[in-house]
Amino acid sequence: MDSPNVELMSALASLFENGKYSDLTLVCGMKRYQVHRAVICPRSEFFEGAVRHPFRESETGVIDLTEDDPEAVEHMVNYFYHLDYLSKPLSRRSSRRSSRPMSPLSRRQSNRRRSTKLNLALIEDPLVAMMASATTAAGPLTPPAEQNDQFESLDTSTKLPDTPMAEQMEEDPFDVIEEEPEADVGKPHLVTHAKVYAIAEKYGIPGLKSLARKKFAQQMELHISSTELPEACQEAYETTVDSDRGLRDVVIQAFRAHPALSLRKDVEAVVRDTPGLAFELFRMASGLPITS
């Protein structure tokens, strides 16, 4: 049985997939998104104002976003219904599979796999081989047999009944609503995260803005050598105002932590073409505060 959180997320995903009960349409180029005012308006200052005031959008039920980046718009809409983007949403089938209690047989097999001892003799490493030979000569590093009995009472896993209640008490109820990792784990998507951050700022979606910044920072650290990094730095400075430090602080911190970035030719070219970034890097190199 689905938990209430999974039930809610599945319902939102279903609304997005089939457009049922839709009362608002977002248009971006050739794409049309059938959305719901009750879902997006309370979370966006722009969309709330567009449908509340007597504008053309509130009368026609159509909001044209053609001037925005199509990819960023798609991720924004996905966030409204999945609380994430660039990730595979958790399906109802997979959620049931992850929350279903383990059978007694499955539990015993899982415990057996966990209790399998590592055969050090099979590892081709001189240090490990020496350890293995020393262990064999001196005997296993385990307590004497008579001492095992005093610890037996602590292992209650074999005495507890394999009931659904026992399984449910062990798992985190919020684990089942987490979404799967990004499909293209090898791609940093730094430019994409910068664009999503910008569109979240434009349309007043604080939750999406915070999520995009988090993803941008994580991927910046993981892919500091990426060829996409210079363009992402430029995107961060050209799509945000000077007072918005969300992405800019991440970029400056990356240069502080990795001084070799300044020696890259592709980074140098972008710095030359991005006055805001160049000015802040100059202040950083001079030991001055980034913001006056």
Rank of each mutant, 00 (worst) to 15 (best):
Pro104Cys: 06
Asp23Ser: 09
Ser22Pro: 11
Gln253Ser: 10
Ala254Lys: 06
Val62Ser: 00
Leu83Phe: 14
Ala38Trp: 09
Glu180His: 14
Glu7Gly: 05
Asp184Glu: 15
Val251Asp: 03
Leu15Lys: 05
Ala132Glu: 08
Glu152Trp: 06
Thr192Asn: 11
Ser210Met: 11
Val77Ile: 14
Gly49Val: 05
Val185Leu: 12
Ala212Pro: 02
Val77Thr: 05
Pro4Lys: 06
Lys195Thr: 03
His193Leu: 04
Met284Pro: 03
Phe174Ser: 13
Glu71Ile: 09
Ser106Trp: 01
Leu288Tyr: 04
Ala132Gly: 02
Tyr197Cys: 01
Pro101Trp: 09
Gly204Asp: 11
Asp149Glu: 14
Val196Met: 07
Pro206Ser: 06
Gln34Lys: 11
Arg114His: 06
Glu152Ser: 03
Thr192Ala: 11
Leu122Ala: 13
Ser99Leu: 11
Thr25Asn: 09
Ala121Glu: 13
Val191Asn: 00
Tyr85Ser: 02
Ser262Val: 10
Met9Pro: 00
Glu7Leu: 15
Glu180Gln: 13
Leu247Asp: 05
Glu67Ser: 12
Ala194Gln: 04
Val35Cys: 09
Arg283Gly: 02
Lys117Gly: 01
Gly29Tyr: 07
Lys117Gln: 07
Leu229Cys: 08
Val271Asn: 06
Ala137Val: 07
Val62His: 09
Glu180Asp: 13
Val51Asn: 00
Gln253Ile: 01
Arg97Trp: 11
Thr60Ala: 11
Met130Val: 09
Ala254Val: 04
Arg43Val: 06
Glu146Phe: 15
Phe174Leu: 15
Glu57Ile: 04
Thr25Val: 15
Leu120Ile: 02
Gln219Ser: 12
Pro275Lys: 05
Ser98Met: 15
Lys214Glu: 11
Asp244Lys: 05
Ser10Asn: 12
Met76His: 04
Tyr81Ile: 08
Glu221Ser: 14
Ser243Gly: 07
Ala138Trp: 11
Tyr79Lys: 06
